[in-house]
Amino acid sequence: MRAFELESVEAIDQAVSHRRVHDGEAFIAGGTTLLDLVKLDVMQPEKVVDVSRLPLKRIETLEDGRLKVGALVSNTELAKHEIVMRDYPVLSEALLSGASTGLRNMASTGGNVMQRTRCPYFRDPAMPCNKREPGTGCSAIEGINRNHAVLGTSEHCIATHPSDMCVGMVAAGATLVLEGPDGQREVAFEDYHLLPGDSPEREHDLKPGELITHVILDAPRSGGQHYLKLRDRASYEFALASCAAIVNLDGDNISEVRLALGGVATKPWRADAAEAVLKGQPATQENFEQAAEAAFNDAVAYSHNGFKITLGKQAIVRALRDATAAARG
């Protein structure tokens, strides 16, 4: 692994000071993404700033009912926290479907939000990649793109966002708290990750020098919740298609619904077109199928990943069925 300077910080203002506005620096918390990518030479930080000892390890309920999660809470702790298991089961299930026991013990909440794509061309510095090296071209569009996205792609990048946790958070609704040299600001979770467009190297709305300090989950939504993840093997594998669903019923009709997709899109994907189809309608298989069609109306398939459109629709239908069953108790 290449050499880098290491600085440890004990306070948030040390972590985000103005002098840190510099591309060659990277924060490290759990390290599961950063060290993997430094070993591959995909990320080449001159300096790594250790934020793992910052006081961001608490989970607390706010007065307005929202749940404030410190960025350094591990994926295991978050998934198994009593309140998360009870009020945000879709998030707990999403977390526990990702990675492995050991990696979840290391990975942090903030780090998971910053997780990079598993696109093999991005991970191989010998290959052209617009995300890693802007302007070099996308090797996946004409390459082996079985694992790539069908939603939110551009002619410059079709890399899939890999996180399960983020899909659960989009469904549950959340706000990111960012601390920077110019103070604190909040960003809606859904708006944080960016579409690749013509600048796939820009993956999120984090300004230079800013640090994610918290994720605040919306007050719990009533109704049934379910996260369904479909993949090549039953565990320890990234999603080919996944769906987080929260369904609220009024009698037999769907009064509220939130749907988010993973494995099929370039960012954690809110399926709002599908939600619009379902709202106020009876919770029937036929309506679930129509919603699934709507979710993939704008999908673009490449040479090897057309199956993801079919699989993604099935994930939506099955997740809706299970969330509806949970809503009925």
Partner: peptide, 22 residues
């Protein structure tokens, strides 16, 4: 692969992705 698994403060972790300094 998990071959490097050890316990740090009682939890199983992949020691290949942990900086010793931390």
């Amino acid at each position: 692969c998990g071959a490097c698994t050890v316990h740090v403060n009682g939890r199983s972790v992949n020691s290949c992705l942990m900086l010793a300094c931390l």
